[in-house]
């Protein structure tokens, strides 16, 4: 046990030392091979050109290698594997995709995912925005923000336990789940929320909304503070009330940030897997694509072809946001 931690620390040391050694050594080597202090001007100029052309790639090398090996190559290979059989050995054409299109579980997962995509980003952004707007104007706002932000630090599995406890249902005896106790208090009948088809999807979404609202709040709060005072003052002088100022003056000025928050949460939603795995493992009609993909990786010894096909579907859903992000980043860079 202690040995294992020791091993980890040795790796940290080796990793850091290795990286430092590589960057230092390769730069030194470059400077030695093409020295800038030579006897002729022409030679110096040539060496300067060469080092300037090579050095960026020395700086970028390890990062590009890791990105290529862990993200670019696998993404391409996943697309390839989605046209192969369960072991990735025989080409099977589109049969994994035709299977998907005729699989009832896939369509259920797809519909559930669409529901998640509609609800979670919308509600997280909405709550984030109103909490950001309100906390900016009260004296204990920072404490409130910090507490709403807290779930961001909690793992999806940890959050699942927290909420499973809230949703707990007992067939007999006193209810120990908070939700059922509240329902009972208001005269309702306790229900096993997690197994109630359709509605249980919403109860799982609550967990992600609970986590993501803090993120939305932090980003939107910064954006709200960036709004120019002048526009607000002008609105007040013109007699606008609080609601009008918020919806007509403030929100339009931060549309860009709202879109960023919305898309970022959308990406998170598409990848969400832990919550469904921990709460229901897709039972009671709660399946989503990411969990189904994980399931097929290992189900019955694993079917890599089908798993890869589901991953490609998730990727296809991400691509519009990816293109949008790249465009925005490019626009921003042109300004630099």
């Amino acid at each position: 046990m202690a040995l294992q931690l020791f091993y980890a620390f040795i790796t940290v040391a080796l990793g850091l030392f290795g990286a430092a050694f590589y960057f230092y050594g390769s730069n030194l080597l470059l400077d030695k091979l093409f020295p800038l202090t030579t006897d002729s001007h022409a030679k110096t100029a040539r060496n300067l050109r060469i080092t300037n052309a090579i050095r960026p790639w020395l700086f970028l090398g390890p990062a590009l290698l890791a990105l290529g090996l862990y993200l670019v190559y696998p993404a391409v290979d996943s697309i390839r594997l989605s046209f192969y059989d369960r072991n990735g050995e025989h080409f099977v054409g589109f049969s994994n995709y035709t299977w998907l299109l005729s699989d009832a579980e896939f369509w259920r997962a797809f519909k559930n995912n669409m529901l998640w995509l509609l609800i979670v980003p919308a509600l997280s952004t909405f709550f984030g925005l109103i909490i950001a707007a309100m906390t900016d104007r009260i004296w204990w706002g920072n404490i409130a923000k910090s507490l709403v932000f807290m779930p961001m630090a909690i793992s999806f599995v940890g959050a699942s336990i927290i909420w499973k406890f809230v949703y707990d249902y007992r067939a007999e005896g006193e209810q120990i789940g908070l939700l059922n106790a509240v329902v009972q208090f208001f005269g309702g009948t306790p229900e096993p929320w997690i197994t109630l088809p359709f509605w249980n999807n919403l109860f799982l979404m609550v967990i992600l909304i609970w986590i993501q609202t803090g993120f939305a709040m932090v980003i939107l709060s910064a954006a709200l503070r960036g709004i120019s005072e002048e526009t607000l003052e002008a609105a007040v002088i013109d007699g606008a009330n609080g609601m009008q100022i918020f919806f007509r003056i403030m929100v339009p000025q931060i549309w860009g940030t709202i879109a960023v928050v919305w898309t970022t949460i959308t990406i998170t939603v598409l990848k969400v897997f832990d919550i469904v795995l921990a709460m229901t493992n897709g039972q009671w009609n709660t399946q989503v694509l990411a969990n189904m993909m994980y399931d097929w990786m290992f189900r019955g010894g694993g079917d890599f072809g089908r798993g890869a096909a589901i991953a490609v579907i998730i990727m296809l859903l991400v691509i519009p946001i990816m293109i949008w992000n790249i465009r925005r980043a490019n626009q921003e860079m042109e300004g630099q």
Partner: peptide
Amino acid sequence: VVPLQMSLI
């Protein structure tokens, strides 16, 4: 934004 799922298999 590339989902982790693309890399796993």
